[in-house]
Structure formats: C-alpha cells, structure tokens
Design a protein around this nucleic acid. Structure first.
Lengths: 146, 146
DNA sequence: TTGAAATGTAATCAATTTGATTACAAGTGT
DNA sequence: ACACTTGTAATCAAATTGATTACATTTCAA
C-alpha cells in the first residue's frame, strides 16, 4: 500500500500558492493545476488551514500561505493532511496468541522498532521545506525555457 | 493508510521459527501463534521462501530459517513480503496540468524527496535483525518469569 | 437587499486493497 | 494406499481512496 496522494497534493497546493501568489488561488484554479475536483482541493485546504499553514476564508476566493515558505516543511504538510496516524505507519497484527512466548511479546517488541523507522522517515521530511520545492521547480523551469 | 500487517506477521514467523526451532513449525502451528488462518501464513511463508529467508518444502511439515538470525534484517523481511513497491511508499497524483509550471514539474521535484524519506525509513529497518527481535523477546520473557 | 461566486462539508459511488476463508491439487512419508 | 502438509487460486466482507454531486453558509458588489 502507498500513502495517500493527499500528501503530494498538499505539497502541490502550497507550492502553487507561492508560485501564483499574484493571482487568485481559488479551489477551482488549484484543481485545474492538480487535475482533480475542486471539492477534493477544498477538503485538503481545510486540513492545511486547520494546521495553520494557509489562510482561507468562506466566501472569499483564494488562499495564501500563513507562514514563510522556508518555515513550512514537508513534515508539516504530512502531518496536516493526516495520511498516516501517529505511530501507525506500520500496522501490527492484533490478538497474537498470549500463550505463546512470541505471540505475547511480539507487539511490544516490534512496536518501538517500527516507530524508529517511522521517525527516521519523518525526520527526512522535516529537512525539506516548501521553499526548497519552489526553488527546484524554478530551476527546472529555467532549464526548460532556455 | 498503514503498511500491511503482512510485514509484522513476517517478522513474527521468522522469530517463531527461531524460538521454536526444536518443534515442528507447520503453517497451522504458526497460525495459532499469530492468530490467523494457516493459508495466510503459507502465503507469507511463500514470499519469505522466495526471498531465501526460510526453507519450506511441499508435503513436509515445518519450516526453518535459511540464514543466520543475525543476517536477516527487518528490511529483508519488508522487501520479501512486498508491502510497498519500490519507490512507492508515497503515492503522487497523476496527470497534473502540464500547462502549469507547478503541474508540469511537481512529480519530478517531489519524487526524489519522497524517495529520500523512504530510504531513510528503510535504512532504519536495515539496522535491526531478527536476532535483535529474539533477544528482546527473551529479555521480556525472563522479566515476566521472575 | 438581491444575487453571483466561493468556501465548508456531507453523502454517495466505483475501484482497490486487505485479511479471512474455503477448496483442492500436488508432494511426502509411513 | 492413506493421512498430512504445502502451494495456490478463488471468493468475500470490510475498509480506504479519490471523484463527484449537492447544498448550506459566507462574502461582496451591483
């Protein structure tokens, strides 16, 4: 299984808010860039808003970043869109046999190990910001334009 | 979404093969410890076998480890049970708008970033072996027995 | 103040995945 | 020959995803 593309879309949205900050970033406009339904965008924007990453208001078209580009990490987005619940990247089978030495301990033993791996992944996400994403896209655009 | 418990069950199986290496580790016995259906165990064992982690033969009851405990990492198990396809821990939305600067570059930009995070996670899994798991369970058992 | 336009949010739907279950062919040893 | 086990496919309910539709609520301008 893969982690929901809601995460990638969240990054897309934030990036677009910056790149198109001169224009009106309505859910419909963003949906056109992402290529999905405006309602999907609004749902994700609601999550980004709830986490304090963007400003959006009912009735008013458009949204913008609530923080500096360089202060928003991919981890912030990842957490915001709830693609994985805390400590649940890896699921562990429930109700193993308590009468078996392995069964009665396996959960407590691998739980922390799985958490460490999950944390390592999150740490990597925390080292990248939306500013980095915008910068990379700018670089790619310049190369394509030459 | 969470990664399939097939991974956790895979670790459980390998651990049990060691802890109960004196006995006959049939799919039925293992299923009793994991608390699931024998067919589920056989399917996972088939994957572990295909990756060279265990020995199992048709018609012959039981299985055993094909390598030294300390030479089997959680990453080996993770790869063996196919819970996540290569470079696909994070899914990225398809068909973003090619007429938008963000849309036409977002995939190539976040792809490598997501891969790095995925690799960080895998590296953490690679640092732990089944021997470590067995050792931890032994420790817990001794504490419980006192 | 009326109406157009946008956000917020819920409900529904098809597609996909998971784990459980059943069934049975094929291999093995007594 | 027979009992037992593995290998494997098919089926099924439950859960999740993303798309879609619908509509209440909010805002602002005419």
């Amino acid at each position: 299984m893969s982690i929901s593309s809601r995460f990638a879309v969240g990054v897309h949205i934030l990036t677009l808010l910056e790149v198109n900050k001169g224009g009106v970033n309505s859910s419909e406009f963003i949906a056109g860039s992402v290529n999905t339904n405006p309602a999907v965008i609004r749902k994700i924007m609601g999550m980004l808003k709830k986490s304090g990453l963007i400003n959006v208001r009912p009735g008013i078209a458009g949204a913008d970043l609530a923080k500096d580009l360089s202060m928003i990490t991919l981890l912030d987005v990842y957490k915001a869109v709830n693609v994985v619940q805390e400590k649940e990247l890896f699921s562990i089978h429930e109700n193993p046999n308590p009468e078996c030495p392995v069964g009665r301990n396996i959960q407590d033993t691998i739980g922390p190990l799985f958490s460490s791996a999950e944390t390592a992944m999150e740490k990597a996400l925390g080292n990248v910001t939306i500013a980095d994403v915008v910068k990379d896209i700018s670089k790619k655009e310049k190369l394509n334009t030459v």
